[in-house]
Write a protein that binds this DNA or RNA. Structure first.
Length: 605
RNA sequence: GGAACCGUGGUGUAGCUGGUUAACACGCCGGCCUGUCAAGCCGGAGAUCGCGGGUUCGAGUCCCGUCGGUUCCGCCA
């Protein structure tokens, strides 16, 4: 190595004893005993102990070593020696050895960092983000970035070996219809017109199939201008894959293999194939979610038939009017939960959109509390039987439309699973959710919307229903779910123009609108489009789950805060007046009042 | 757009129903110390309690607003 570095800090082992070594890195910690000085030197591979012993090192070098402080950047030459018996440090991968320094060079001094870089002190996240370059020095963050790199590399290797080509698609493009708000980029050359940043490369990857590429992938940056969450950033990365001349099973098979390959290589976990497949309907009924967390029980059960003839009007009326009564047997919670905790469940249920949460505790005699009093002993025992409950169990019910039941109970299930510690965080809940509906009715928009996106192909036998009965059309779509998080979603695409046109029509687009938005795309269908399909993975989310992090910010090198700001660079920031003029943009009075646009060359602040 | 929680030396926290000089640990600076490894011992500096109002004889503490962070709902696959 040209910089004279012979080893990385964390790689030195007993085998290196007796070697001369030159290492470079940051002073992680110093322990100055007056006579002898220990330095833990850190680089991205880990720590190694450097010893400055006045009997070994020259006096002026020792004086230099006394001046070392945390985060100084140094280069040290010395002899690798085995540590004396009893002096080994089992907490360090390099704990069997240490470097007896002979030469020290301070390459750069450092101010005391604003927060400690060791693992055991919690730090305010705003501070971490402001000094992200320091935060990223922490070994934990470096390990995550390394993991991310490794997964990307494995994905590339896997797909390359199977004939996929990595092709880039434009960032400055036309608005694509994912349903989210676009980030717009004003055009200087075309006054008044805007590019949109891609929400996904959806149209381009389909056009690549039309272009005969056959197999494509990309690790693609995507942008959606919506409010953030712990698992949502305005810019994020998708692993985007598309294949021609395939059906649903072809794609799911190869993707499963990729999943198994990654789990094997990254976490050493054997994934049994084929993956479990759950229909959308079953997922909604049993787990109340289209992305069920299958790592624990507490499944939802339908007791509509059992309770429809009881005198409890809330139940019987709901069933009579076409609704459902569904519940969860919260095993053991009847004994464990305080009344206050049960009330909290009710409050949550209301917040999730139910009229109320009905409950009772199963006892030897039948039941107590909640809605017990509305039932005869016989009705009660039938209900308890249907819920497979035993004394001490808490039964909770929601009586409402199927969607509300699923939504409320699904969320309560997740809450309870976490609260009661039922989730085994060492297992991986991997499955496919298949047989999606093609459409979802949007109450706010008052019209049908694509459940996935408007290019998803319906099942062939459902094509006729497109305009007649949209709610009945099933999609050739599949979602990959991991630990209750959607990590991937895909479908077989429409490859015939008339089907695509009918799809647009079903979504309420006039043919003029379809033409102006997607004319180029519709035209492309006319020139020989192969059947094709694919999938897109939320790459950041996958990494987050593999790294067992709770926030996307921990797996993205330079993430944004909940208010979509970058605390390090200060982005977004004010544009100078001249820039705006070139872009043919004028601020509204409200915006102007807020930012005070500087008229001269000085940007920011 | 809405809700909740948080904001106290450089960092992490404590500070009760409002009451005198804001406490502790780590870090930092200085001294001592030749085998530590989250070194030890001694000493020292360092905070107008995010910001602005208000209530009060008196506010870190109560109220209102505002800024920042986080989480959730809406929004978003």
């Amino acid at each position: 190595m040209s910089f004279e570095r012979t080893h990385y800090c964390g790689t030195l082992r007993a085998e290196d004893i007796g070697k001369e070594a030159t290492v470079c890195g940051w002073v992680h910690r110093r322990r100055d005993h007056g006579g002898v000085i220990f330095i833990d030197l850190r680089d991205r591979t880990g720590l190694v102990q450097i010893v400055f012993n006045p009997e070994v090192v020259l006096p002026d070098q020792f004086t230099q070593a006394e001046k070392l402080r945390n985060e100084f950047v140094i280069r040290v030459r010395g002899m690798v020696r085995g540590r004396l018996l009893g002096m080994e440090n089992p907490n360090l991968s390099t704990g069997a050895i240490e470097i007896y320094a002979t030469t020290l060079e301070v390459l750069n001094e450092a101010k005391t960092p604003p927060f400690a870089l060791d693992a055991h002190t919690g730090v305010d996240e705003a501070l971490r983000l402001k000094y992200r370059y320091l935060d990223l020095r922490r070994l934990e963050m470096q390990e995550t970035l390394a993991l991310r790199h490794r997964v990307a590399k494995l994905v590339r290797d896997f797909l390359d070996a199977r004939g996929f080509w990595e092709i880039e698609t434009p960032m400055l493009t036309k608005s694509t219809p994912e349903g989210a708000r676009d980030f717009l980029v004003p055009s200087r050359v075309q006054p008044g017109e805007f590019y949109a940043l891609p929400q996904s490369p959806q149209l381009f990857k389909q056009l690549l199939m039309m272009a005969g590429i056959d197999r494509y992938f990309q690790i693609a940056r995507c942008f959606r201008d919506e409010d953030l969450r712990a698992d949502r950033q305005p810019e994020f990365t998708q692993l985007d894959i598309e294949m021609a001349f395939v059906d649903r099973d072809d794609i799911m098979n190869i993707i499963e293999e990729l999943v198994a390959f990654l789990f094997q290589e990254v976490v050493g976990e054997e994934v049994k194939l084929p993956l479990r497949r759950l229909s959308y309907t079953e997922a909604m009924e049993r787990f109340g979610s289209d992305k069920p967390d299958t790592r624990f029980g507490l499944e939802i059960q339908d007791v509509s038939e059992v309770v429809q003839d009881t005198n409890f009007r809330v139940f019987s009326d709901t069933v009579r009017s076409g609704g459902h009564v569904r519940g969860i047997n919260v095993e053991g919670a009847g004994d464990k939960f305080a009344r206050r905790e049960i009330d909290e469940l009710g409050e949550r249920a209301s917040a999730y959109g139910s009229k109320g949460l009905l409950w009772l505790i199963v006892t030897e005699e039948g039941g107590r509390g909640g809605i017990t009093k509305f039932f005869t002993a016989e009705e009660l025992s039938r209900l308890v039987l249907a819920m497979q409950a035993k004394p001490g169990d808490l039964l909770i019910f929601v009586a409402d439309k199927a969607k509300v039941c699923a939504d409320v109970l699904g969320r309560l299930r997740l809450f309870l699973g976490e609260k009661m510690g039922l989730i085994d965080h060492d297992t991986w809940g991997l499955l496919w959710v298949v047989d999606w509906p093609l459409f979802e009715y949007s109450e706010t928009e008052g019209r049908w919307e694509a459940a996935h996106h408007p290019f998803t192909a319906p099942l062939p036998e459902d094509v006729e229903l497109l305009t007649k009965a949209p709610e009945k059309v099933r999609a050739q779509a599949y979602d990959l779910v991991l630990n209750g998080t959607e990590v991937g979603g895909g479908s077989i695409r429409i490859h015939r123009r008339e089907v695509q046109e009918r799809m647009f029509a079903a979504l309420g687009l006039t043919s003029e609108e379809a033409q102006s938005k997607f004319g180029f795309f519709l035209d492309a269908f006319d020139y020989g489009t192969p059947p094709h399909g694919g999938i897109a993975w939320g790459f950041d989310r996958l990494i987050m789950l593999l790294a067992k992090k709770n926030s996307l910010r921990d797996v993205i090198a330079f993430p944004k805060t909940a208010s979509a700001q970058d605390l390090m660079t200060g982005a977004p920031s004010v544009a100078i007046d001249g820039q705006l003029r070139e872009l043919h943009i004028r601020l509204t009075p409200e915006a102007e009042k807020k930012v005070k646009v500087p008229s001269t060359a000085k940007k920011d602040q």
